[in-house]
């Protein structure tokens, strides 16, 4: 059932920006055969100091949210997560936070791979039979932004 990752799909822009917000889009793989629908990435429970970055919300708003968590929220550390296209933005946010703190903040970045699931719906259902699913991998980044302990 599960197909290996199609190299042709790498050109498809990744619009699953984060765990929290993502989009499934109708994509033409092979217009006659299948319709591709992306399922949501797996969600995990979220702490208060977890920030999932997406591409839909304004950058400044997300930055301000992180800043607020660090300043007023009473958190010594926050975690900024980004998936796919949003990795860039997550890094950006973390660097901005560090720059605006005049060196008080430190960063620790981890990367990971997230397994995503696509549904392939046959266009002509009578012939093609069962709908197919396949998994593909996508990169994610988790940046810990924290005040180092004084000692």
């Amino acid at each position: 059932m599960t197909e290996p990752r199609n190299p042709g799909m790498s050109s498809v822009p990744q619009s699953n920006p984060s765990h929290t917000e993502s989009s499934s889009q109708a994509v033409e793989m092979d217009p006659v055969e299948y319709t591709l629908r992306k399922r949501l990435p797996r969600k995990l429970p979220k702490r208060r100091n977890d920030v999932y970055v997406n591409m839909k919300t304004d950058f400044r708003a997300q930055l301000a949210r992180c800043q607020k968590l660090l300043d007023g929220g009473g958190h010594r550390e926050i975690c900024v997560h980004g998936l796919g296209l949003a990795i860039n933005r997550a890094i950006n946010i973390a660097l901005q936070l560090q720059a605006s703190s005049q060196g008080a903040l430190q960063l620790a970045a981890n990367t990971s791979t997230v397994e995503l699931i696509d549904d392939l719906e046959p266009e002509d259902p009578d012939e093609a039979g069962e709908p197919m699913t396949r998994t593909r991998n996508n990169s994610a980044i988790h940046i810990k932004v924290f005040y180092p302990d004084p000692q």
Binding site: P122, D124, P125, D126, G129, E130
Partner: peptide
């Protein structure tokens, strides 16, 4: 009509799983 999307006879529905 099949043109308007999967119908009653689509395999995934006919099995009863969807």
């Amino acid at each position: 009509c099949k043109e308007a999307g999967p119908t009653f006879s689509a395999a995934m529905f006919l099995s009863g799983a969807r």
